[in-house]
Design a protein around this nucleic acid. Structure first.
Lengths: 229, 229
DNA sequence: TCAAAAGTGTTCTAGATACACCCATGT
DNA sequence: ACATGGGTGTATCTAGAACACTTTTGA
């Protein structure tokens, strides 16, 4: 870049903030923490942290996600960088927001308690510090848009899931109901689900077959994205 | 965000870099400058600059675009934030990349000369400093993706354009040829083009009608995006 | 035997694609 | 009169949408 205005630059801190989505079988939820320090102590907020000078933003986001969830290799993607001059009460801080998807079942209750974290339905997110509400809204947009063409919905489900669970997931994301026959026809036609010989017996007498998402088939068939919906 | 690792943080500078696309009637091109200062003086690079402490990243990108083009109100959108620890030879600098579209005809030759700027076909972009090549690639992806569902292609054309010019634009972006009848049928069916009573006579004896993009009709009809292709 | 969820096929419709000729005009 | 690009219509195909009954099995 060109050197313009370099002299005027004061210290600007760089943070990452993570919008973490989960799916409880019926609703998409966001994981928020009760902020345990000043400023804005006691208010709800996204989990975040400052970037260290030897790590990338991706590294920082992974670290922050690990602290909160104890999980590594979480699906995660850079969302947007928020730079309003007065967005953080404590001084000039820009924040690189990350969007993450986790399977709720893998998430330890212990850590949840330690951080005073809670899952919130998207229509019940409380007021959040700074511009975190905007971040959540933007993440929700990205989720809707991305899940229509990329196989990321599976990140929100256990590795074995039934077709009905998958349908419920899409219905929750889009807030609409889908036709069961059309949905299964479409999903199976993509050739990226592997049917197991095992049934989920909890929710019905007949039992529903489990499926797994087959990453290698996906990569082979749909290198350039699919149309899920 | 949580306070983690704050103590270890050294100064990190924040820059913006702009990927500027234009369309010359046949090809999509990117505007690059010959860097006039060290490090990497004399090499090709994107136009960029540091964020001042009283401006947002959007402000900084607008400023940088104005410096290079003399134009205000350029279509512009935040693309991605690049944070590799050693991306900039001069020290730790993160860069918020912006994606911009301009109408080549509006661009002053004077300013072009002052910055030693040049338009490059996307398949002839020379080697660039730092990670600017990655930025260009990412911007090209976004262009392809976004132009399919949002009316941003018009930013690359004069306000009055013929249907053939519009088709050429899409053909250039997607590197494929389209059927003239199907293309015009589709475009006109969207109800967002206004036909003028004026013909472009330069390129044929018969002359081709000019059209304009009608923003208000677009907003009314397609509040949630359209499918152009 | 019955309640409760699982599984499955056909018709209809709209949008996308493929395809070729006549039109208007300046020289 | 003719060369050049401008403009237009129809048939086919494909994907999505609408729609309801049978199957399985544990209690």
């Amino acid at each position: 870049m060109e050197l313009t205005g370099r002299k005027k630059i004061k210290r600007i801190l760089i943070a990452v903030d993570c919008i973490i989505f989960g799916f409880d079988g019926a609703e998409i939820k966001a994981l928020l923490i009760k902020r345990g320090f000043k400023p804005e102590k006691g208010k709800w907020s996204l989990m975040g942290g400052f970037i260290k000078d030897d790590e990338t933003a991706d590294d920082a986001a992974s670290r922050v996600l690990y602290q909160l969830t104890g999980m590594r290799r979480i699906y995660m993607e850079q969302l947007y960088t928020f730079t309003d001059v007065n967005r953080d009460a404590a001084g000039r801080v820009i924040s690189i927001a990350y969007f993450a998807l986790i399977n709720v079942d893998d998430y330890s209750t212990q850590l949840q308690l330690a951080h005073e974290a809670r899952w919130f339905r998207l229509d019940e997110v409380p007021s959040l510090i700074f511009d975190h509400k905007k971040m959540v809204a933007k993440a929700q947009d990205l989720l809707k848009q991305k899940v229509a063409t990329h196989p990321i919905g599976f990140e929100l489900l256990p590795s074995k899931f039934t077709l009905l669970q998958l349908q419920n997931l899409y219905e929750a994301i889009y807030q609409m109901s889908l036709d069961k026959r059309n949905f299964t026809k479409k999903m199976l036609s993509l050739g990226i689900l592997q049917k197991l010989n095992e049934k989920q017996k909890e929710s019905s007498r007949k039992g529903a077959f489990y499926y797994m998402f087959d990453y290698s088939k996906y990569d082979r068939l749909h290198a350039n994205g699919v149309k899920f919906l």
